[in-house]
């Protein structure tokens, strides 16, 4: 990954999250990669489709299954300048979920006197497809 920033050019990276948390390790692995790769200061977006929408659902409590609840870490993404989290509406609908069931993730906008703004953008499947077309690199988890 050393030449990711070669020539100072910024590339558009999309992390595609399709799995629910805890049942498999994909969700946690994705988040760790996102945090590490944040050091490269690229244009990063996160997409949550299919069961991936469960990664950012409110009220996760893992005490009963003896695993670490990593959902609070999504609140730190704003500190890492990652503030574009796209969630697909059709995926929410199919699962009986709405935007209100998601964590209210925000970031502080440096260019707007550190005003708190929402990081989550609910988009249609068609908009998500367009977003994918618009990337340089797509990493799937």
């Amino acid at each position: 990954m050393g030449d990711m920033n070669e020539g100072g050019s910024t590339k558009k990276f999309l992390y595609l999250n399709r799995k629910a948390p805890y049942g498999t390790v994909y969700a946690l692995e994705s988040l760790e990669v996102v945090l590490i790769a944040a050091a490269f200061e690229q244009d990063v977006s996160l997409a949550f489709i299919d069961d991936g929408v469960y990664q950012i659902i409110q009220g996760q409590d893992t005490t009963g299954i003896g695993m670490k609840n990593f959902s609070p870490t999504f609140n730190a993404l704003g500190d890492y300048d990652i503030n574009k989290l796209y969630v697909e509406k059709e995926s929410l609908d199919e699962r009986g979920l709405t935007e209100d069931d998601l964590m209210p993730l925000v970031y502080e906008d440096e260019d707007d006197d550190w005003a708190e703004k929402p990081s989550i953008r609910v988009v249609s499947r068609a908009e998500m497809a367009d977003l994918m077309q618009d990337q340089d690199v797509i990493l799937s988890f």
Binding site: N69, F70, P72, T73, A76, D79
Partner: peptide
């Protein structure tokens, strides 16, 4: 305690 991670150095200095 709040975020369940140790911050990267860039995030630490800013905070």
């Amino acid at each position: 305690e709040e975020y369940q991670i140790a911050p990267a150095i860039r995030v630490l200095t800013k905070a």
